[in-house]
Nucleic acid binder design. Structure first.
Lengths: 188, 188
DNA sequence: AATAAATGAGCAACCGCTCACTCATTATTG
DNA sequence: CAATAATGAGTGAGCGGTTGCTCATTTATT
């Protein structure tokens, strides 16, 4: 046996990538990512064989972080509206707390770097939330629409809320609550 | 005077850029864009001094195209719901008809290449629509929220509809109508 | 004849990635 | 319990290729 790979360095690379991509876009140089992570340029490739692999793992990393947040404190026995509110507010707060993370996440989402394989892995990690969203999709307002629409609607409404909060940061909580109300009206 | 610059070549470059960026991302090479447009690599720079200029003008080009579509056939005296529906359906149909254009548009939107200057120019071109959206923003459901929220909500809801239509292309019209109903419920 | 568009070879800068090498860490010996 | 062998992480100069952009030259338009 020899030296073990350090998980700290791995996450340092991922965090450095977020920072670099947030400012320079997906064309951010691997060398810059490495130097920001405090390692040599070559070392990056012992953790991630190619840049595309790094970006895919980064996408996974960001998504899992969000899901971890959603699962924390999830009230499984509360009413549907309260559970939906939990999902709503945890995600929105994460997006506001880590705007760079969210920016990189959407850059990767729009690009065609993320493989179906990666998307599959992401989908596997959301069972509790997925079930709640299924219940929402069965409500009157969503009945005539395909099942995924309720989730797509929530994430898109959150984007709208984010954009608005960015312009009126002081009204953050009020906007969050009112926007959820609008969501619930649309869905019911 | 001498030889005039050809508007056809200009739009050929813009259309080629859309094609290249849709497949290779914003890192698409200017040389490839030029060759797809049927011109020499250097000629691109007599039309656009830098790549960033090209991308900014491309963003403007895409946005103006959408607004032209929205203004065509706009019923200024119809009910608010019908006017909102016109905006909704024309934009959605454009997005479905030109998926690459929309993809490039959102890539540019997420990147930080688009300057405030460009965004200002875009905002100037939407007076009729802007006025309708102001009326929507005054409705009960949007009263407690900042003015921009109603538009942000529409465009984000359209994104949700687009994603869903991509998965169920046959139900396109039904999804479009139902999603608008959901929007109207949220807004009223 | 005068002007400016069009060309494409060429340039410096930068890209992702490799590779020969050093070194930290562990397992295996006597 | 040393001494040593085996392993693979860590390094950074450097490679082949690509990038955005320039510029001497040619070509088309007035």
């Amino acid at each position: 046996m020899a030296r073990a790979r350090s998980p700290e360095k791995r996450t340092a690379i991922l965090e450095a990538a977020i920072e670099e991509i947030a400012t320079s876009g997906l064309g951010a140089a691997t060398a810059k990512i490495a130097s920001r992570a405090g390692i040599a340029s070559g070392t990056l490739f012992t953790y991630f064989p190619t840049k595309d692999d790094l970006l895919n793992e980064l996408y996974l990393y960001l998504k899992l972080q969000v899901y971890a947040r959603l699962n924390a404190g999830f009230p499984p026995k509360a009413s549907l509206e309260r559970r939906a509110w939990h999902i709503w507010s945890s995600y929105l707060n994460w997006s506001i707390e880590y705007p760079k993370h969210r920016n990189v996440s959407t850059q990767l989402h729009v690009s065609n770097i993320v493989t179906p394989e990666t998307n599959r892995k992401v989908a596997q990690q959301s069972t509790v939330i997925a079930r709640t969203m299924e219940e929402v999709a069965a409500l009157k307002g969503m009945k005539e629409l395909p099942g995924e629409f309720a989730s797509a609607l929530m994430s898109s409404l959150q984007e709208a809320a984010m954009d608005t909060i960015a312009l009126h940061p002081k009204q953050r909580d009020e906007i969050s609550r009112q926007a959820f109300k609008a969501y619930w009206r649309a869905v019911r």
